[in-house]
Design a protein around this nucleic acid. Sequence first.
DNA 1: ATAATATGCAATCATTTGCTTGCAAATATA
DNA 2: TATATTTGCAAGCAAATGATTGCATATTAT
Lengths: 119, 119
Amino acid sequence: MEARRDVFQAIADPTRRAIIGLIAAQPVNVNAIAEQFDVSRQAISLHLKVLAECGLLNITQQGRERICEARLDKLNEVHEWVAQYHKMWTGRLNALKSLVEEEEKEATSSPKKSKHIHK
Amino acid sequence: MEARRDVFQAIADPTRRAIIGLIAAQPVNVNAIAEQFDVSRQAISLHLKVLAECGLLNITQQGRERICEARLDKLNEVHEWVAQYHKMWTGRLNALKSLVEEEEKEATSSPKKSKHIHK
DNA sequence: ATAATATGCAATCATTTGCTTGCAAATATA
DNA sequence: TATATTTGCAAGCAAATGATTGCATATTAT
């Protein structure tokens, strides 16, 4: 039931990402959030629960309202995971760029070998 | 069945993230990947399919083998999504820091108007 | 040609998801 | 106090997910 509940899982759902976008700037109460979506209030409530369970959301009771505040810093895990690869792929692009430039120079002097493409 | 298939969904699964980590450095064939995990080859095959469907993976047939190559640049969507919030949460920390510093200065000098921070 | 290897595909299954509706509890307002 | 508002909780459901097993197919090695 409440098995896997990590940040990656939480942001996998587009509605939940939208919720984060909605409350990133400032805290909003549950109903106000729900009004922004087509699904039922309960559906949103469940999404909020998921977000809260992985720390992306802070819920504070205020009278009969519950104010949801984003804890964006909890996205750090995702940020770091992607960042390591970001380094790799940008680095790789640079390497490719230099390779192409190198090839262009060679193009005027020596012939190139063609690659096989197996289907 | 094959409904939502985006990058966020793809990296939500820890096994799939592990697969990406495994082939990020260099291309690996399907069985070699499967051997690294406890689940069946077919389970991995399915994960690879998911990764391939959202472009995170490139599969090239080579004889009877299929070589899986990571397309890390496809993580850019995630990178950008997180980056916008990364700015906010680090910016927020900085804002808090400058606010504190500002307060400290004000304690001794004349009051000043605080800056607005627009995104 | 035959056997071994690398994989995909299909059927099946237990869980997990994402939603919905209805009902209950707490708090604010008239 | 009676009523409206804001939410949570529980039951029920269809679809998606992740995994398994068995069988088929293509390619390579003997």
